[in-house]
């Protein structure tokens, strides 16, 4: 329907069909749709046409926005938790397998790669049959984790474009999951974002027998992990601050703001310059 208006094949009173046309339709070029709608008998006059258009647009946009949100952060939370569960279970079973298969096959090794090798064997005894079958499960779980990760990588930028760009899709999804959703992450102060995932250490600190944790899962961010230990606290604070802002922009506006990344890059350059200054100081 590249030459038709949204109202073609639709009754003025049928908002559902109109809304579907508004969502799915296309045209190569605009036209004087109000006049055409009156000519074609869709509406007796332009006023009636605009009323029908208003209803169709409101319904179409409301439905599409709701669907997009429903498909959003909660799906991401489930996916990243399932990914972690699959990976953890695969590693646990792989350990069990390496004990068992190591004795049966006179082979050494561990982990998912070892499970892959065992899964390819032809079992010759009932004992071997069980071990090889278990190896197959380990491989399946590891593959599922990889598929889930790929899914998280495509979903996270849609759900939280700024957070995903700044933290990377997987860390973004973990932060959303730890907070319980994008909205609750957006409402957390940056100090909380900084220690999300380090709750045990945080409560030990609050009970008074440990120092405060410098970072939670944001440790996996290159800007934290890749900064020398002396400056890691500053780096964690800077990263958490910008991630908290990114989450708020993603939740309240949803627009991509590349300048946020640039601000973090700038701040990190300053923090990392300290290490260079110290080195120069040592030389001199």
């Amino acid at each position: 329907m590249t030459g038709d208006g949204w109202f073609a094949g639709c009754d003025a009173g049928d908002t559902a069909t109109g809304a579907e046309h508004v969502r799915e339709g296309r045209a190569d070029a605009p036209a004087d749709w109000p006049a055409r709608a009156v000519e074609s008998g869709f509406a007796p006059d332009e006023e009636t046409y605009y009323t029908a258009l208003h209803e169709a647009c409101v319904a179409a946009t409301r439905d599409e926005a709701t669907e997009a949100e429903r498909a959003g952060d909660q799906q991401l939370v489930h996916a990243v938790r399932a990914m972690d569960d699959c990976m953890r279970t695969a590693n646990e079973l792989a350990e069990r397998l390496s004990e068992w298969a190591g004795a049966l096959f006179d082979a050494d090794g561990g982990g998912v790669e070892f499970a892959r090798a065992v899964a390819d064997r032809e079992p010759t005894t009932p004992d071997e049959e069980r071990a090889v079958s278990l190896a197959g499960r380990v491989v399946d779980l590891a593959d599922e984790a990889a598929d889930l990760e790929a899914y998280v990588e495509t979903r996270a930028p849609t759900v939280a474009p700024n957070l995903a760009a700044m933290a990377g899709p997987v860390l973004a999804a973990r932060l959303v999951a730890l907070a319980g959703g994008l909205e609750s992450l957006a409402k957390k102060p940056s100090g909380t974002v900084q220690v999300l995932g380090a709750e045990d250490a945080l409560f030990a600190h609050l009970r008074g027998h440990a120092s405060s944790p410098k970072h939670g899962v944001i440790y996996t961010h290159e800007y934290v992990r890749g900064t020398r230990p002396a400056d890691r606290g500053s780096a964690a604070r800077a990263v958490a601050g910008k991630l908290a802002i990114a989450a708020r922009v993603d939740h309240y506006s949803g627009e991509r703001k590349p300048e946020l990344d640039a601000e973090l890059d700038e701040r990190m350059a300053t923090i990392r310059a300290r290490a260079e200054d110290d080195e120069e100081g040592d030389d001199g």
């Binding site: 329907m1 038709d4 208006g5 949204w6 046309h21 508004v22 969502r23 339709g25 296309r26 045209a27 190569d28 070029a29 605009p30 036209a31 004087d32 749709w33 109000p34 605009y50 009323t51 258009l53 208003h54 647009c57 409101v58 179409a60 946009t61 599409e64 926005a65």
Partner: peptide, 27 residues
């Protein structure tokens, strides 16, 4: 838009006018 009968909201990408040229009038 709900209280404004002359306001037509469209969830579309402004870089792809073909996706709303069937709704938005010319001129």
């Amino acid at each position: 838009a709900e209280s404004r009968p002359n306001l037509f909201p469209l969830l579309k990408d402004a870089r792809k006018p073909a996706t709303y040229a069937h709704v938005v009038e010319s001129g």
